[in-house]
Amino acid sequence: MKKRRLWLVAGVLLTLVLSGGILLLPYGGTDAAAKKAGAVSSNDVYVLSKIIHGEARGETYLGQVAVGAVIVNRVKNPNFPNSVYGVVFEPGAFTAVSDGQYYTNPSSSAVKAAQSAINGWDPSGGALYYWNPSTSTSRWIWSRRIIARIGKHVFGR
């Protein structure tokens, strides 16, 4: 009898704490392991490295530079926004921005790839688009002319 009452009291308390917790706790983000790693000379290199990390984390260095080069090529192309920021944050243009993966810290490989891409290294050969054939749902993208395949990505324009 006494034991059951104890369970009941514990149950009441637990429910109150849980519901209170759900209502009162602020939404929190988690801090991933991070370290200071150096200096870049401009924000656009850093933004570029974040999008490379978000979009091509699993790719080789070559594949990462190629993704960065596509963004640099878009900035230079009159049919796309005129800055790295405009291209990266164009609504719906990059999955990594839409699903928030962009907001994690880039790897040092992504930073190096971004620097190479900004400096003019372009493994894609002037591509304006890239997509992953196994996950891409857009049919329109296949109307682009394919100019290179690097890792999981197809590059076209």
Binding site: A32, A33, A34, V40, S49
Partner: peptide
């Protein structure tokens, strides 16, 4: 003029 450098963070 060389651009100002700023510190950045990378994932470990």
């Amino acid at each position: 003029t060389p651009a100002q450098k700023f510190e950045f963070t990378v994932s470990a």
